[in-house]
Structures are given as C-alpha cells and as structure tokens.
C-alpha cells in the first residue's frame, strides 16, 4: 500500500469503536427452518482470505432480525409484487412471463450460477439481461430500468427460488476472460482516495469505517433491501455507491465492466448460500 492510500484509509477508519470488531458468531437460520451457510472456507482462487462471511454477520442484531423471518423482511413486499407481475400480460405479443415459463419455481438453481456466459452470443450475462431479453425480444415490451422496482423485484423473486443453495459461478472456460477483467477491477485503486475494493473489503473487513461495520462485500444476498433507501438495491447500484465513495467517476449500471465485476465478486462468495433478498443497513 502506498503512503497516500494508507493515510486515506486510516483517516476514514474509526478504530476506537472496537466493541463491534469482527463478524459475529450467530447462525443465520431463516423462518426457523432454513439453515444458511453464511460462513465457510474461502474458494481456492481467493489467495488473501481463509474464511468468507455473508454481510449479515456484520450487521446489528436489529438489522439481522429483519432477515430471519420472511414476514419481518420488508423485501418480501416487492417479491409479492413480482409474483403478480410474473402473471401480468405486457407488450405487443400479448404474453406474460407465466405464458411461457412453468411457474417461477422453474428457475430454481439459476441464481447460484449467475452471472454466466450465454451459449449463443458468448457474452457474459447477468439476471437483469435474461429478464430484459424476454421482455424485449419475446414479449415485445419495453425493457425494465436496471435498478427500477419492477426489475429488482423480479430479480429478487427469481433469486429467492435458489435461497439456501451454495453460490457456484463458473470462472473457467468461456468465463475466464470476464473473470480476469473483474478481478483486475477489484484490485484497481479508484478515485481521489485511491482505494480499491480490496483495500476495504479484503484488507479491512471487520473494522469500523466511519460508523459502518465493514463486511467482505459479498453479493450473495442481492438484491438487498436497504434500510437507507427503503427499497431493493441492485448489485450494480451497490458497486456504483462504493466507487463513488472513493470520489471517483463510476461505471454505469448495466455496463460490461460491472458485469465482469459482478462475476468476480460473485465468485469470491462461491460456497455461501444464496440469501436473496437480504436486509442491510
């Protein structure tokens, strides 16, 4: 770490609040029955971490409680809305998602392997791409806005079908070049503060940054309901926020850069349960 970055990070880390250091030891069990893997051995490709933790472990008891019961979880109202949307006809073709897909349960397992390389185009695709492709090409309807309520509700509903399954994105074969690109971004220092994702989420997880308890920056719970915005937040929106905080220009939601970063960040969480939709501060 160069001295400039060191100064920047020590300036924003607030060590005296040591009481909350480290992840907590509780187990994440949802609805009293679904045991989640929220702590596990780091995947082999991760050189600098031995153990990976879900962001849930870094939140206060009150925030954690909102995620352990589906009724208390405010994200579920948006999931409910998506259930209705799934059956709503839209677009010139006169179809709804349900006209072609045999129930949203048929997407079980999909989230655990996203992002993935699309066999036809050879391009890396994320869940939002799959949904919008059906909307524009198959329903002849307008694409949904990336971080809009409809899109993130649907991403959450489809992700929920895989809740509890271990994240397992492919990083080799066709995916390798995208994964390398994402990894490179993860270690690139952005902005006036010259901080990389790794400076915060790999070198300083468990510490307090200003008043926030820093996690490993995992995305296994996305889209997450954030108390701050009181709505579902997309992965790319979170990436933007983190880069903006280093006072850098950021990439756009839905950009190829963020697709690659999403693949790499997802792969850092390989082995953690899909938690969608999680609740965060």
């Amino acid at each position: 770490m160069n001295t400039k970055a060191l100064t920047a990070i020590t300036a924003i880390l607030v060590f005296p609040v040591a009481v909350m250091a480290g992840p907590d030891e509780e187990n994440l069990v949802i609805n009293g029955e679904l045991d989640m893997t929220s702590v596990t051995k780091a995947p082999a490709h991760l050189e600098n971490l031995d153990t990976i933790y879900s962001g849930w472990h870094f939140r206060t008891d009150e925030t954690q409680a909102l995620q352990i019961d589906d009724f208390d979880n405010p994200a579920m109202i948006f999931v409910d809305q998506a259930v209705d949307l799934f059956a709503t006809v839209d677009g010139a073709a006169g179809e709804s998602c349900a006209s072609c897909h045999d129930g949203v349960e048929s997407f079980k397992g999909l989230q655990a392997s996203m992002p993935k390389v699309d066999a036809e185009s050879g391009k890396l695709v994320v869940m939002e791409d799959l949904i919008n492709r059906c909307r524009t090409d198959r329903m002849e309807a307008d694409a949904w806005k990336w971080s809009g309520g409809e899109m993130q509700g649907m991403v959450a509903l489809i992700g929920l079908q895989s809740r509890g399954m271990p994240m397992n994105v492919a990083i080799d074969g066709d995916a390798a070049p995208y994964w390398e690109q994402g990894k490179e971004m993860y270690y690139t220092r952005y902005g006036q503060l010259e901080l990389s994702c790794a400076n915060c989420h790999e070198d300083n997880w468990g510490n307090m940054i200003r008043a926030d308890h820093l996690s490993q920056g995992m995305i296994n719970g996305f889209p997450t309901y954030r108390l701050k915005q009181a709505k579902l937040i997309s992965r790319h929106n979170r990436f933007r926020g983190c880069i903006r905080d280093t006072r850098a220009e950021t990439f756009a939601e839905g950009s190829d850069e963020f697709r690659a970063l999403e693949l790499y960040v997802a792969s850092r969480g390989n082995g953690l349960s899909v938690e969608t939709p999680a609740v965060r501060q």
Partner: peptide, 9 residues
C-alpha cells in the same frame, strides 16, 4: 401506486 398489504394471522 404499488400499494400492497401483507398480513400474517
């Protein structure tokens, strides 16, 4: 828009 109640009884 989008007002939707959820009730658990």
């Amino acid at each position: 828009s989008g007002v939707k109640p959820r009730v658990k009884v």
